[in-house]
């Protein structure tokens, strides 16, 4: 239980981060701005990463099917815009509506995953990918009336990128910003993120959490002890889906746009990458790992952009991003296989 060893992905990413920091200094990019930005990136992506935790801890693996939850959140956002709700009310409506839809989506998703136990990660990937075309139909056919979200030409179907400028752009980022010297801390955003973290942390101190972690550790054991496994798995999967819906709302208000269509396509990967850097495995994850992993990964992204722009071809940033994200996931799977190999004779 008390395994405090620093794992290799963490070491690699920390070294990479240090190198970037040194280069940033040498090039002369202001470090304060980057640190300020890093807080926003941390909380903005943090909720999506946090959404992985319930599913991992109920034995359903990394949620590669995150686009399903994200789509639910996106519907929530679109409905809030359609109703022309601005400010806090709009944001809260988006989250509530998104969560309600996420419950329905999560229920269907859990039905699939409970039938195909043991292969959740690959099934989730495909479920997520195949869900996007279905949602694309929805986005083009949905009879919304607000012209700010429709295609400017023709006036039918939602546009791929809807601006939140007139609604709730930066609602969390820009309220309650505390300035200490040059540093700016977005208290509302971080507080919102930390409250969600605390709630999840609390969950694992309760009876439900206790049972959930046991299900992920040894399903047969839980069954023999009288636990209805599928019920708990369903609960965990729905919770993950809801958190993903809330996560995309938080992400969108920071980003300033609602990205539809292929927007959610690859969103699961950086999140999975982040939690792996934090030291999670596909059997157990903690909130602490979410906090550490997200901060390390997002800051790396943040630093690599100006550095790559300054010393390499500008387009290289996106390539680097992909290499880091997917490389870490691949490493984590390899590492898992490796420990198996040496575990037995």
């Amino acid at each position: 239980m008390k395994n405090k060893k620093v794992q290799i992905p963490q070491i690699i990413i920390c070294i990479y981060l240090l190198i970037l920091l040194v280069v940033v200094n040498v090039i002369g990019i202001p470090i304060v701005g980057i640190i300020n930005e890093s807080f926003i990136k941390w909380a903005m992506n943090g909720v999506l990463v946090l959404s992985l935790v319930p599913m991992i801890n109920v034995g359903a693996g990394m949620n590669f099917g995150m686009p399903i939850g994200i789509s639910a959140g996106l519907i929530g956002l679109c409905i809030a815009i359609e109703l022309r709700l601005q400010g806090v009310i709009g944001f809260i409506t988006a989250m509530i509506v998104g969560s309600l839809i996420a419950i329905v989506f999560g229920l269907c998703y859990s039905k699939i995953l409970n039938r195909l136990k043991g292969k959740e990660e690959i099934i989730g990937t495909f479920a997520g990918f195949s869900f996007i075309p279905i949602m694309n139909f929805f986005w083009t056919l949905v009879p919304f009336k607000n012209r700010q979200m429709l295609y400017p030409v023709g006036g039918k179907g939602l546009r791929p990128k809807i601006s939140l400028k007139n609604y709730f752009e930066g609602i969390l980022d820009n309220s309650l910003v505390v300035k200490i010297g040059e540093f700016q801390i977005p208290v509302a955003l971080i507080l919102f993120f930390l409250i969600l973290c605390f709630l999840i942390q609390y969950l694992y101190r309760t009876r439900v959490g206790h049972v959930m972690t046991a299900v992920s550790e040894n399903e047969k054991f839980a069954q023999i002890s009288g636990v209805n496994i599928n019920k708990y798995r369903t609960k965990g999967i729905i919770l993950s889906t809801i958190l993903a819906a809330i996560g995309i709302c938080v992400y969108s208000q920071s980003y300033g746009f609602v990205e539809l269509y292929d927007g959610p396509f690859m969103m699961a990967f950086p999140a999975v990458s982040a939690i792996l850097i934090g030291g999670a495995s596909s059997k157990s994850a903690t909130v602490k790992q979410v906090l550490i992993g997200t901060y390390l990964l997002q800051t790396t992204y943040l630093l690599s952009i100006p550095v790559a722009n300054a010393i390499l071809v500008p387009e290289i940033t996106e390539v680097l991003r992909m290499i880091i994200t997917n490389g870490i996931i691949l490493y984590a799977f390899l590492y898992k296989g490796g420990s198996k190999k040496y575990g037995k004779i």
Binding site: M1, R207, H210, V211, A214, E217, N218, F221, S225, G226
Partner: peptide, 22 residues
Amino acid sequence: KEMGLLLDSPIWKNIVFSSCHL
């Protein structure tokens, strides 16, 4: 080992698990 214990959990959790649940 396969069905009766949470091998990677501490003793206390193994002993109280079912009572917590039931």
